[in-house]
Design a protein around this nucleic acid. Structure first.
Ligand code: FES
Ligand code: FES
Lengths: 143, 143
DNA sequence: GAAATAATATGATAAAAATCATATTTAGGA
DNA sequence: TCCTAAATATGATTTTTATCATATTATTTC
């Protein structure tokens, strides 16, 4: 459903949301292990997330990655859009040029409702929301 | 959302459902063009669909691919499962070993409902159902 | 049964995604 | 200021997916 990269990015962002803040930064290699993602790979993904303002960072000694208030308030779909691209969600399931109710593909008719619902929900929930669920024991972060 | 291969397979199967039957077979190369898929590629996909009983075929002169009654009654999800594998739908969105309500990942909590709905709908609709929608002008098959 | 036709099996190549590796830049502390 | 630690930029390698190509096998027709 989601690419590996997206899964990794979500896990990383959630981990940071739970364990970091502007005074408690975490190095890439220390994120990699607890979420079970290759260190060099998560490093690269984090760089992209920093570039797109989904994660914050400072370099040098005592540096690392962390989630600012603004970062925490970003929506889950923003992470997915940055990593996988928006078309993954808005594009036609069968690659019709335009996806709309006027000229739907056969899959549109049966799937667009649940698809719209997914998008809505991803748009409504922030990283912080998901992190809170984990904190409250209502969800678990996979290795 | 779906792989290229899955999209191609769905399009091919729908095209066959609309234009073929046991007495009107269609050659791979004649399917490729109308659905806009590389001929050699669709040929390979069709072979896999034949192997898994989603499409029928006969070789030699006057041969080709076609959809039998049974083929037409297969569910849409069967095509997707054959091409992309079942885990794509049943697997955890964040790669938790087990995906269930007992120990859900953070995405599970917000997405499982719409995901279940998608699976349900793909399980309920047959190839013939989708083809009928196209025949009735309620859906369009993309190039 | 020979010739022609079309699927099948198999494998090669190309493109994209995932993974690994490293030199460069920035920030902190001595 | 100089050394060190950490992110950043960049690019190489590997794996997977998509695409292309072809020799083999089965079926029809003559
Ligand atoms: S037209 Fe295909 S998903 Fe909307
Ligand atoms: S536990 Fe992750 S989707 Fe169900």
């Amino acid at each position: 459903m989601f690419s590996n990269s997206s899964k990794y990015a979500i896990k990383a962002v959630l981990y940071l949301s739970l364990h970091s803040n502007s005074t408690r930064k975490i190095m890439a290699k220390d994120i990699a292990q607890p979420i079970n993602v290759p260190p060099a790979y998560i490093a690269k993904l984090l760089q992209e997330l920093v570039r797109t303002d989904l994660v914050s960072s400072v370099r040098g000694p005592k540096g690392g990655f962390f989630m600012s208030k603004e970062n925490n308030n970003q929506k889950v779909i923003d992470v997915l859009n940055v990593i996988d691209g928006e078309k993954k969600f808005t594009g036609c399931l069968l690659s019709l040029e335009a996806c709309n109710e006027e000229k739907p593909c056969p899959l549109h008719n049966i799937l667009s409702t649940s698809r719209q619902h997914m998008i809505k929900v991803l748009n409504e929930h922030s990283i912080a929301d998901l992190a809170l669920a984990v904190k409250n024991g209502k969800a678990y972060l996979p290795l």
